[in-house]
Design a protein around this nucleic acid. Structure first.
Length: 427
RNA sequence: GGGGAGAUUCCAGAGCGGUUAAAUGGGACGGACUGUAAAUCCGUUGCUUCGGCUUCGAAGGUUCGAAUCCUUCUCUCCCCA
């Protein structure tokens, strides 16, 4: 199956420039996708683009991952309603390095002819001076053409306006494509559908400057059935960096997708074949409560993004946290393992001496710790039946918590609702 | 520069001298149901030693009593030049 067919049945394909498929059928073709270094980690929103590159490589082509050290300095106006703040060069350098190491996990950089390659456009922009650029590049693209782009039009219509810097963004990105086409033989640029305008400026530049041809493919933006933004949770974006989003949370993010989303997303984010996916879907239809789709989705992505080991830990943590099992389970674990289960869970230190005397639950949760911001709230929540200590529902706001309730003589597990855990460590 | 409107608890938005910790809606959080889903239903949504205490842009004042009336200040919005 060729690359485009693959994207098509997976429902990823948005736009494709005429002739692209023929070009790809000729043999090994080089193509690239750019990543903006706006943070020092990619998030799940970038995963679609990573998957596109993976499919590209699996179809036998040579993927380039461009990290925009230069474009990041300018700021892409696409999809932005207001001017962005510029990042300093140091921050960008750090971000670029971090993103590069993340991308290395997903693509094969040592497989011969179609090995993946990493490039940074700062390398070809850092010594390119302004006058040369506007003469060599700017001359080929009219302002009229640039202004007709959606990303620009929207900002001109809006109230905030747009700086010359962001206006020039498409030229900078366009030149990337030109440079990679000229120096690396890159024939195709891929990206999210919001990048169409920028990509086409690149093919246009290649055509006008050298009479060459280049191609474009864009993928659909991932949407949630309920209309909210993909990749966001209450805690903010879901990052690929384990330090920002723990593998457990990452796994949970995917596990919690709705049925309709899971069915679409698994096609995008899984490398399983159509037959395999259809089998999973059938299984899901049969027993929806088993959530075969969500499990398959979460397992595959977590393993690929983090590791098989991290996935296993995420699964066992989930099983403990969501099963009705008692805290006895924890008694069997070592201290390190307990801390691992509650990784990312907020922790509080409490005095063991005071626990010997017994502490009023409300005081414990609102004063000794910050599980609740005030006693009133703690009390109300307890009366509403929303608080558990060591998996047992607390019914009396004035009840005592004592040292003999400590798990392993050291830990207390407090729950606000079902999903919000707090680990109290006595010392 | 001239004229007008307004600032209320997370947001929107009632209240226009006491019965108002402040309607209603949204959001958030909890509970039930369930599949760690969706939908639905229910509860909570200033602090408290549960006696009370502090809130309605800020500061003063009138009153037994003010978010509600008066004065000044700060800020926001709209219309006309």
């Amino acid at each position: 199956m060729n690359f485009i067919e693959e994207l098509r049945w997976r429902g990823m394909l948005q736009d494709i420039m005429p002739g692209t498929e023929d070009e790809l059928n000729k043999g090994i073709v080089s193509g690239y996708i750019g990543f903006d270094p706006t943070a020092d980690s990619l998030h799940v929103g970038h995963l679609t683009q990573i998957m596109t590159l993976i499919h590209f490589q699996r179809a036998g082509h040579k993927p380039f991952a461009l990290v925009g050290g230069a474009t990041g300095m300018v700021g892409d106006p696409s999809g932005k309603s207001a001017e962005r703040n510029l990042l300093s060069e140091d921050v960008l350098k750090h971000n670029v390095a971090c993103i590069e190491s993340q991308l290395k996990k997903f693509l094969d950089f040592e497989c011969g002819a179609n090995s993946a390659e990493m490039v940074n456009n700062f390398d070809w922009f850092k010594n390119y001076n302004f006058l040369d650029f506007i003469r060599d590049v700017g001359k080929h693209i009219t302002v009229n053409y640039m202004m007709s782009k959606d990303s620009v039009k929207k900002r001109l219509e809006g109230e905030t306006g747009m700086s010359f810097t962001e206006f020039s963004y498409q030229l900078v990105q366009g030149y990337d494509f030109y440079w990679l086409w000229k120096n690396k033989g890159c024939m195709v640029q891929m990206g999210g559908s919001d990048q169409w305008g920028n990509i086409v400026t690149g093919t246009e530049l290649i055509r006008r400057k050298e009479g060459g041809s280049a191609f474009a493919v864009t993928t659909k933006l991932i949407k949630k059935a309920d209309g909210t933004k993909f990749g966001k949770t209450e805690g903010g974006a879901v990052w690929l960096d384990a330090k920002r989003t723990s593998p457990y949370k990452f796994y949970q993010f995917w596990l919690n997708t709705s049925d309709s989303d899971a069915k679409e997303w698994i096609r995008v984010f899984s490398l399983k074949t159509k037959a395999e996916l259809e089998a999973i879907e059938a299984k899901h239809e049969e027993a929806p409560h088993q959530r075969a789709l969500q499990r398959a989705l979460a397992e595959e992505i977590t393993a690929r993004t983090h590791s098989e080991e991290a996935l296993q830990k995420a699964i066992s943590t989930s099983e403990f946290l969501f099963s009705t099992g008692s805290v006895d389970f924890l008694e069997q674990l070592t201290d390190d393992e307990i801390l691992e289960v509650f990784e990312g869970v907020q922790r509080f230190a409490v005095s063991k001496d005071e626990l010997q005397q017994g502490i009023n639950v409300t005081d414990l949760l609102a004063e000794k710790t910050k599980v609740f911001p005030s006693k009133g709230e703690a009390r109300k929540m307890i009366q509403g039946g929303g608080v558990s200590v060591n998996r047992n529902k607390v019914s009396d706001p004035n009840g005592l918590v004592t040292a003999d309730q400590l798990v392993k003589g050291e830990y207390l597990i407090a729950q606000k609702g079902k999903k919000n855990y707090f680990l109290l460590i006595a010392g």
